[in-house]
């Protein structure tokens, strides 16, 4: 098991290096001189030249890239152009909000989406099935930020039940979580339904029926466990989308997270901040995918045994 985790961790390294390289390249190719931006319009050429030297802007692209990575590994993502404070501190103060939002979102999607999917498969072609598929269709087509606005309009501005703007309380996370959950929920309903339908037709389900197991046992003990694997994969893939969606969702509800930070930083051309927040999100996604892979081995013994063979 440890070897499996170790190997997966090693596999993460090139991906993260690749992502950071791409983001770094995009940021370095940005038109405009960072030293000039930092000092403002009225800076003298000498001051700019001096700062360029200090910031190491005259070095070769690869030297700069590896220096950035080296510093990043020590938790130093540079200083914000705008505030001149370390980027890392700002990131850490906002990261919990984004993560909370993403987890609530995915949690809600799983808690509602998976049961609906199961029900839909078990009662195929029934009214429940039609309604839940219709719901899933509408949910995939609704832009999350618009849904957020509509929820805010109804529950905050008209009914005055929930806060419209984040104030850090659990209540203020309800609407954003629903907003974020919808897309993933739709995918989960469809995914759970179709894998359940496949599994239900398998021989071992017929065997279970033949030996007289109750319908409940068949669905939960025999079918669900086998149908869960692709569902877990979907959850993993969607976590990345969740974090991407959180960026937009945060700005609807004015949540102080990485997303709002990213957007204001782009507007203010605060490159180190943009770069670090994108990297941070990418890193989180990789870690979550690793956790999902580990989870696999617990859900499906086949995956584990497969790995044990190749390891020897």
């Amino acid at each position: 098991m440890l070897r499996f985790i170790g190997k997966r961790l090693l596999m993460m390294v090139p991906v993260i290096l690749g992502i950071s390289f791409i983001i770094f390249a995009i940021m370095v190719l940005t038109p405009g001189n960072p030293a000039q931006m930092k000092l403002g319009e009225n800076a003298t050429p000498e001051a700019i030249a001096q700062l360029e030297e200090e910031m190491g802007l005259n070095d070769n692209f690869f030297v700069r890239y590896f220096r950035y990575i080296g510093n990043a590994l020590r938790g130093d993502f540079g200083k914000s152009y705008r505030t001149d404070l370390p980027v890392f501190d700002e990131l850490m103060s906002r990261f919990p909000n984004t993560l909370t939002l993403a987890f609530f979102g995915i949690g809600l999607a799983v808690v509602i989406g998976v049961p609906i999917g199961i029900l839909s498969a078990v009662k195929q072609y029934s009214i429940i099935d039609t309604v839940s598929l219709g719901l899933a269709l509408i949910m995939t087509s609704i832009p999350a930020f618009w849904l957020g606005l509509m929820l805010m309009l109804v529950f905050s501005l008209k009914l005055d039940l929930l806060p419209a703007v984040s104030d850090g309380t659990w209540k203020s996370f309800i609407l954003p979580s629903i907003t974020l959950a919808i897309g993933t929920m739709a995918t989960l309903i469809r995914m759970t339904r179709s894998t359940m339908l496949e599994v239900i037709r398998e021989d071992y389900i017929r065997t279970a029926r033949a030996k007289g197991a109750s319908e409940k046992t068949i669905i939960f003990r025999h079918a669900l466990r086998n149908a869960l694997l692709p569902v877990v994969t979907t959850i993993g893939i969607n976590f990345g989308l969740q974090l991407g969606g959180a960026v937009i969702c945060e700005s609807v509800f004015s949540i102080q997270g990485l997303g709002t930070l990213m957007i204001t930083s782009v507007r203010q051309k605060d490159i180190p901040m943009v770069m670090a927040s994108v990297l941070f999100v990418a890193l989180t996604i990789s870690v979550v995918n690793l956790l999902i892979d580990i989870l696999y081995t617990y859900i499906d013994p086949r995956v584990k045994s497969q790995y044990v063979k190749t390891a020897r």
Partner: peptide, 24 residues
């Protein structure tokens, strides 16, 4: 294809935001 895999690992909205940040 490794390059493509890496591009796919970045959520598209984040990639788009980074590019807009760079190009304006």
């Amino acid at each position: 294809m490794r390059f493509m895999d890496i591009l796919m690992a970045i959520p598209s909205i984040l990639l788009a935001i980074s590019i807009v940040a760079a190009l304006g």
